[in-house]
């Protein structure tokens, strides 16, 4: 994680490093070791945190931080196949007050790909977390309705994981579907 330290960061890191960012500094002061790393790059603030701290940090950012981050813009994940921890869950928050943004990243192990759901904090997290579950197989503990959102219930696996075979097809009808004799599962 040393590459995350802003002083050694790439060109474009803010003068004074992430420590100069007041929001990141306040996060670091308040949550201490549970903030694993902070970085600032061309005005984008990022905090890497332990999954166990997510709900507390999110509630803090929504209620107490100034500006208050009242909007969850996006939830997604990154699959670093071969690295440990394998997954990184990414949250983008925005403050509608002054349009400032902050990004939260959660490293998650492959064996237990689950993080707390943010639906209690931002109801808009509902479909975003369902999408991340659909595509990456990340479990969101406490989600009220964790079903697939884009794909069909019959689909096996999570297609945006790097080890999902690119050519693998799971058609509902047509060649390769169940009930089709000699289906290869590979389209035409």
């Amino acid at each position: 994680m040393s590459d995350r330290v802003a002083e050694e960061g790439p060109e474009g890191a803010e003068a004074g490093g992430a420590e100069a960012n007041p929001l990141l500094r306040s996060l670091k002061e308040r949550f201490g070791e549970r903030i694993l790393a902070i970085e600032a790059f061309r005005g984008d603030a990022t905090a890497v945190l332990a999954p166990a701290a997510l709900l507390e940090v999110a509630t803090f950012l929504r209620d107490e931080a100034r500006p208050a981050f009242d909007m969850l813009l996006d939830v997604t994940a990154v699959d670093f196949l071969g690295r440990r921890p394998r997954f990184e869950i990414v949250y983008h928050l925005v403050s509608t007050g002054d349009a400032s943004r902050v990004r939260l990243k959660l490293p998650v192990e492959e064996e237990t790909p689950s993080v707390p759901s943010l639906v209690p904090v931002w109801p808009g997290a509902n479909w975003l977390e369902r999408e991340t579950f659909d595509m990456y197989g990340i479990r969101f503990d406490g989600h009220p309705d964790l079903r697939r959102i884009y794909l069909y219930d019959e689909f096996i696996g999570h297609p945006l994981r790097k080890d999902y075979p690119k050519q693998k097809r799971q058609p509902l009808i047509g060649p390769g579907s169940q009930g089709e004799a000699g289906g290869q599962g590979g389209g035409r």
Partner: peptide, 17 residues
């Protein structure tokens, strides 16, 4: 033919169905 979308989601030509 499915066009550029050679992936998990897209039917590779509707003449398969």
């Amino acid at each position: 033919t499915g066009g550029p979308y050679d992936n998990y989601a897209v039917v590779q030509g509707i003449d398969t169905i």
